[in-house]
Design a protein around this nucleic acid. Structure first.
Lengths: 129, 129
DNA sequence: CGACATGGGTCGGGATTTCCGACCTGCGTG
DNA sequence: CACGCAGGTCGGAAATCCCGACCCATGTCG
């Protein structure tokens, strides 16, 4: 019955900041927690906890995440200041996709969804062309 | 009751490499584990375990260590060879962009180009927002 | 509108890991 | 030899983590 067992989940500004950055980046890339989980092996609920600053992030986990998010590890550990999403952006992307405004990026994603949808429905409708 | 508690010492090469690097750096700087412990708050026995790859290193702990050792965090996490961006870069793409057929991919790129072009010309035409 | 699907937060509780506090060996050194 | 320091190791106890739901909010579709 200890009101404060000790390092209760949450309440660590550093961890929260880290989680926040991880979430922002994931959102920016349009990935779901599930996808991140699949790609990294980190349990989905853990991804959720991490982003809420309720769970620590192991070094190697952070490394995997950084890789998946295409950012240097330091990006997530940096000191407040140098934490701008737009900057470090996507190094290995086709030129056509870099430098898009957030709004345009959204449009591109929607368009891509549309294309995939169209392809899927075509296939569904007429299996054997 | 567990055939494989998986809690065995030093089973993860990655962790061992990380620990090795940490130890080498500490040795190089002539610090004792005790000193590192005092400076970082990481229990001394934990420092020992870490260096032997028997314990994970939390992200924030690594940050503190890197700071104490005056090295960038990436120094300890860097992969032997920093290359192969191609494949892994794509692994981090938003799901909307994954799994597109070549043709659709072309369309997406074209669309992106179009958006950038449009935005550019709009701006040119109407400088002041 | 209701049936579903997806995304994300939260929780109980057993499984793991970490921490604490020794204890032990190895090494100089006085 | 006694001493002190460094680092490795261990027995639990305590803190965390993970699994597997369960919930709620948002769409989407028929």
């Amino acid at each position: 019955m200890s009101p404060e067992p000790a390092a209760l989940r949450g309440r660590d500004p550093e961890l929260e900041l880290l989680g926040e950055r991880l979430r922002n980046t994931r959102d920016y890339l349009g990935m779901s927690q599930q996808h991140v989980s699949d790609m990294t092996g980190i349990p989905r609920s853990a991804v959720s906890d991490i982003e809420r600053g309720a769970r620590r992030v192991d070094s190697l986990e952070l490394k995997k995440l950084a890789r998946l998010y295409m950012r240097p590890v330091s990006y997530f550990l940096a000191k407040e200041e140098e934490a701008d999403l737009g900057e470090h952006a996507l190094a290995g992307l086709p030129r056509a996709l870099v430098g898009l405004s957030d709004g345009d990026w959204e449009e591109v994603l929607s368009f891509a969804e549309f294309l995939k949808f169209r392809r899927a429905s075509e296939k569904e409708r007429e299996p054997g062309e």
